[in-house]
Design a protein around this nucleic acid. Structure first.
Ligand SMILES: [Mn+2]
Ligand SMILES: [Mn+2]
Ligand SMILES: [Zn+2]
Ligand SMILES: [Zn+2]
Lengths: 145, 145
DNA sequence: CGATTATTGAGATGGATTCTCATTTGTTCG
DNA sequence: CGAACAAATGAGAATCCATCTCAATAATCG
């Protein structure tokens, strides 16, 4: 379990507690797209007393520290991912299908944006919306009927 | 009020009703970042009987049709924007500040993604996360104390 | 170790979204 | 132009998720 994240927490003046360690651990190992409920369940596997409110509080804290961030795909509420590097989706607005892809040109923009707005950028999300191959056929069928 | 959107609704087999027209009208004219409550209020200015559930149903429908899409900024619930072209944010993970910016290289990727995945892309969202100028000073101050 | 605080967990509360169902309305077609 | 039909609506109930409250606990520091 990443010692540097723990140090980051401590250096920011926060206490190192079992629920926080559990959530951190889960984000590290499970990785992507877990919702607060799932995170709670996994956290309780590590530290059974973990309460729901604490998971929300921890996620908020880790978000503020730039360690995780929420991501919203479809209508199923927020989900959390590590806030580093890029995350890229192709989303079908009709059926909700989501495809992850990798190659991305957004990094090329970071330097300039940082200079222009004085930001320090650590991650990005790029999502394209449209119709997946399957839904295109449905839609054109409907039109030609 | 855009006749082509009305035609799009009708062609997809949906009825043209006052609440739907009202929501469409609002999205057209008010544009960006309205939440369901605000949309309800504006819709009722046009068609007073409009019910809350209908606004939610209409937003869902318009989302499926690729006319609008939800966008989540900060923790303040979903907000709706037109689903066309690009939308670009710089988000501070500490204080939540959001800056809109314009120039973007994502369009250049569309063609290739469409071919690779068989998608038909109509819009995109590009968000960079990090620390705004102000929060950078706070954080380094905390570290040096 | 004891003092000082931040943190926690349980449950209550609040707010937003969805559901239900009887009623109304748009559309189609004769 | 009326039916006739199915789709859509609105009011309120029900549900679900997130936040708040507060007394108890535990991390950190000297
Ligand atoms: Mn993903
Ligand atoms: Mn914006
Ligand atoms: Zn699809
Ligand atoms: Zn900031």
């Amino acid at each position: 379990m990443s010692t540097s994240l723990i140090r980051q927490l401590r250096d920011a003046g926060y206490k190192i507690t079992p629920p926080r360690l559990a959530v951190l651990e889960i984000i590290q190992r499970e990785g992507e797209h877990l919702n607060p409920n799932e995170i709670l369940a996994h956290a309780q596997a590590i530290h059974p007393q973990t309460g729901r409110a604490t998971v929300y509080r921890t996620l908020e804290l880790l978000t503020q520290l730039g360690i995780v961030r929420p991501i919203y795909v479809g209508d199923s509420g927020p989900t959390y991912i590590r806030a580093q590097g890029g995350h890229h989706h192709l989303v079908c607005s009709r059926c909700g299908a989501v495809i992850d892809f990798d190659q991305c040109v957004a990094d090329g923009m970071e330097r300039e944006l940082e200079e222009r707005f004085g930001f320090r950028i650590t991650s990005h999300l790029l999502e394209f919306y449209g119709l997946c191959a399957h839904c295109q056929t449905l839609t054109s069928a409907a039109l030609s009927e």
